[in-house]
Computed example of a mutant assay.
Amino acid sequence: MTALPSFPQSWRRLVLLLPVVIVTIALITGYFNESFRPRLPKVSFSDPANSSPFHSECKSDNQTSHLESLPGIIQALWAPLVFPITGPTFTTLDGTEKHLPPADQLIHTQTFGKRICILDVDTRPLENPGSVFASELPTWDNLRPPSAGFLSHYLYALIHGYTYKFVRAPKYADRAPHWTKIIFTRELLKEFDIVVMLDYDAMFPSPELPIEWLLNYWKIDKEVMVAMAEDPDADNNKDLRGNLNLNTGFIIAQAGENTQRLFKDWAECPEETRYKGCAEWKDKIFHEQTGFSSYVRYDFLDGYSIDTHPQYIRKLPCMEANGIPLKKDAGCGGQFVRHYWGDKGATKNEFKEGVMDALTPLLLKSAFGDTNIVRDMREKTLKGAQVLDSPNAAPTEE
Rank of each mutant, 00 (worst) to 15 (best):
L4I: 14
F7G: 04
R12F: 03
R13H: 03
L16K: 04
L17S: 11
L18R: 12
L27P: 00
I28S: 11
G30L: 07
L40Q: 12
L40D: 04
S51L: 01
P53H: 07
S56K: 05
C58T: 12
C58F: 12
S65C: 00
E68M: 05
L70R: 05
A79C: 01
T86H: 11
T86A: 12
G87F: 02
Q110L: 03
T111W: 05
K114W: 05
T123H: 05
V132R: 05
E136Q: 14
T139N: 07
T139F: 03
N142T: 14
L143I: 15
S147Y: 04
I159Q: 03
T163N: 07
K165M: 04
F166A: 10
P170V: 05
T180R: 11
F184M: 08
E187S: 08
E191W: 02
Y200M: 09
S206N: 15
E208N: 11
Y217M: 01
I220E: 08
I220C: 13
K222N: 15
V224G: 06
D231R: 08
D233M: 00
D235I: 09
N236Q: 03
L240H: 11
L240S: 10
L240W: 14
G242D: 13
N243Y: 12
N243S: 14
L246M: 15
N247Y: 01
N258I: 01
T259V: 07
W266Q: 13
E268G: 08
E268M: 10
R274L: 14
R274V: 14
C278K: 10
K282A: 12
D283P: 00
K284A: 02
I285D: 11
H287Q: 06
F292G: 14
S294C: 06
S294V: 10
S294Y: 06
Y295T: 09
V296S: 00
R297G: 06
R297M: 13
D299R: 02
Y304S: 12
R314W: 04
M319Y: 12
G323K: 12
G333N: 11
Q335F: 05
Q335C: 01
Q335I: 04
Y340C: 00
G342L: 01
K348S: 14
T360W: 06
L364P: 00
K365D: 15
A367R: 10
I373R: 12
T381A: 01
G384M: 02
